[in-house]
Every structure is written in structure tokens, then in C-alpha cells.
Design a protein around this nucleic acid. Structure first.
Length: 300
DNA sequence: CAAAATTCCTGACTGC
DNA sequence: TGCAGTCAGGAATTTT
């Protein structure tokens, strides 16, 4: 399941591949993937003829801004893939639901077996709640979280982006103490911090040396600092490795290549295997309906 | 058959 | 009693 590092990898590649490309046609073969729109025709009409200007990201959402200030928003859900194809003749994989064909230079395909993901076009002006409708800052390549949020009112509820929106440990501590939630649940709460899912929350908590069920308002100053550092470092490292592709998972980058970070996993999906730090077996627990992996010795 | 995990929704429970 | 926050559980989904 693509989380922040996988989505960021996609963003970087999309920025090189589709910026300044003009969308000639849009084919929707599964309406569920564009379910926010009244119809597939509506979705198509908003995209055809538009040119992609920038590629941003907020949490797990990709934002392709268009030349008319609308944004094509993409969330991959659990099994979504974006594939850049130069040769339009290439056979379409099963579960290809949306295809954007460019005027010159191939197409962008959206593939999503489980259809939890979605695409939609957002208009800053019509969606209201944007008093001054200020336009896109020139030269914005990746995400200025505040600017992106202004552009896409549908994403206004998302919490800060841990990579784009840096903050002090003090500030992070204030946010933690405003809540009284289990650390894992909080890290996965997209309204608190956006982009972290089951895999990376486990990895971050291992690196921080904190158990998943510690409460957010019960951390010492040192622990707060460790958690913040672990969050930024883990995600940054995973981005360097172009994300995680699990054995049974279907995350692939824009060109169909696997990520490389799975080999660095400390706890995720390692039940019973020795902790890389202390050799004691990794424990699997259940939290919020999800599998949780941790080291009972290293994480306190 | 169960498990995997995303967002959204609802109902239950807790503390003040 | 009510309210806000937290949390568990279910739906939608397909593959292994």
C-alpha cells in the first residue's frame, strides 16, 4: 500500500514525465475510480485539452495542477498504480480504469484492482472556502502544503506533511500533548499528520524506541524529540530507496520498477524474526484492526 | 475462509 | 446530561 515515500517517489518521476504535457483524451473504464464526479463524462470534460503544470503531493495524495488552476487529485488507496507508457500499443494490464493520453508522447495509466483509490478534479473557486482564490505561486515544483491546501479544498482536513512541513520539536510536542491517543493510531491519523500508514508507523516507532500503545501526552521531551527525528528520518530514507515493494504487494513506480526499502525494514512483517538490534523476536499485535509489529525489548 | 489495508461512517465508551 | 475525543468495528474491494 503506497504511503508517503511511495507517493513522493511517484511525484518526483511524474514531475519529470508529465509536466507541460497536454491531455488529448481521457478514457474511464471504471466509474468507481472517479466516484466523486457525477459521471465519467464530467470528469473527462474537466481534463481534456488541459496542460499539466506542476506535480505536488500532500500526504498520500498526488496533485497535478492544470493550466486553468484546477487540480487532478490522485489517491492510490491500497492497490493503485500509475504507469507511464510511451508506446500506446502496449497491452493494458487488467484493472486499468483510467487512461490519460497526451497530445505528444504516450499516456498515463491508472490501474487499481481493489478500487479503494480514486481520481478527481478539484476547482479552487467553485469548491468555495477560498476567499481570495490566490493563484499558484510561480515555480512551485513540489508541495508548499499551505498553497496546495488552498488549491484543493477537499484536502483541507489533512494534517501537516512530515516531509514538506518541517517544525520544531517544541511545536511537535505541543501537537502531541493536545491529543490523548495511542502513538500508532495518532501517526496513522491523516488529520494529525498526513502520509503515514501501517507500514511506516511501525518502522517509525521502532526507530524511536517507543511502543505503539504509548499515549501521545505521556512522552518525555527526549521521547518527543526521538519520535520526530524517527519520523523524518525513516520517511526520508525510504524515499531515497524509492519506497517499499512487499512480496505480495503491488507497489511499482511510474516505470513499473520495484522499490528498494523493504530490505531495510526493522519490524514490519517480521513476526518471529530476530530484532536487528537486540536479536529478540519481533512481536505481532493487533491495534486498530491492523497488524502491528514491534520489538518488546527495544521499544518501551 | 481469512487476511491484507485505505477512507469513511457509526456506535460505544471515557473523562470532565 | 451533554460534549468532545478516542477507539473499535464494518463496508467497499480483489487476490493469495
Amino acid at each position: 500500500m503506497p504511503e508517503l515515500p511511495e507517493v513522493e517517489t511517484l511525484r518526483q518521476d511524474l514531475a519529470k514525465e508529465v509536466v507541460n504535457k497536454k491531455i488529448k483524451t481521457v478514457a474511464v473504464t471504471n466509474g468507481r475510480s472517479v466516484r466523486r464526479h457525477p459521471s465519467a463524462k464530467h470528469f473527462r470534460a474537466l481534463l481534456e485539452g488541459r496542460t499539466i503544470k506542476t506535480v505536488g503531493r500532500l500526504g498520500k495524495y498526488l496533485l497535478l495542477t492544470l493550466d486553468n488552476k484546477d487540480s487532478l487529485v490522485i489517491h492510490l488507496g491500497m492497490s493503485g498504480q500509475l504507469i507511464r507508457v510511451k508506446n500506446v500499443k502496449e497491452p493494458k494490464p487488467k484493472h486499468t480504469h483510467v487512461v490519460l493520453t497526451f497530445t505528444q508522447g504516450g499516456e498515463l495509466r491508472y490501474v487499481d484492482p481493489r478500487t479503494f483509490g480514486e481520481m478527481f478534479v478539484s476547482s479552487p473557486q467553485t469548491a468555495g472556502a477560498t476567499p481570495n482564490g490566490s493563484s499558484l505561486p510561480a515555480g512551485m515544483a513540489s508541495g508548499d502544503g499551505a498553497a496546495l491546501r488552498r488549491l484543493v479544498p477537499e484536502l483541507a482536513h489533512l494534517g501537516f506533511d512530515p516531509i514538506e512541513d518541517m517544525m520544531s520539536w517544541d511545536r511537535f510536542g505541543v501537537l502531541l500533548r493536545q491529543r490523548h491517543a495511542g502513538l500508532k493510531a495518532l501517526l496513522m491519523d491523516q488529520e494529525f499528520v498526513s502520509g503515514i500508514g501501517n507500514l511506516y508507523s511501525d518502522e517509525i516507532l521502532f526507530t524511536a524506541g517507543l511502543r505503539y500503545d504509548r499515549t501521545s501526552d505521556g512522552l518525555s521531551a527526549t521521547e518527543i524529540r526521538r519520535l520526530y527525528r524517527a519520523m523524518v528520518e525513516t520517511l526520508t530514507e525510504a524515499i531515497k530507496h524509492r519506497g517499499s515493494t512487499l512480496v505480495d504487494e503491488q507497489y511499482r513506480d511510474l516505470f513499473g520498477e520495484a522499490g528498494d526499502y523493504q530490505g531495510s525494514h526493522q519490524v514490519y512483517d517480521r513476526e518471529g524474526e530476530p530484532c536487528r538490534r537486540c536479536r529478540s523476536p519481533i512481536v505481532r499485535a493487533r491495534s486498530g484492526g491492523r497488524s502491528t509489529f514491534y520489538c518488546a525489548h527495544c521499544q518501551v
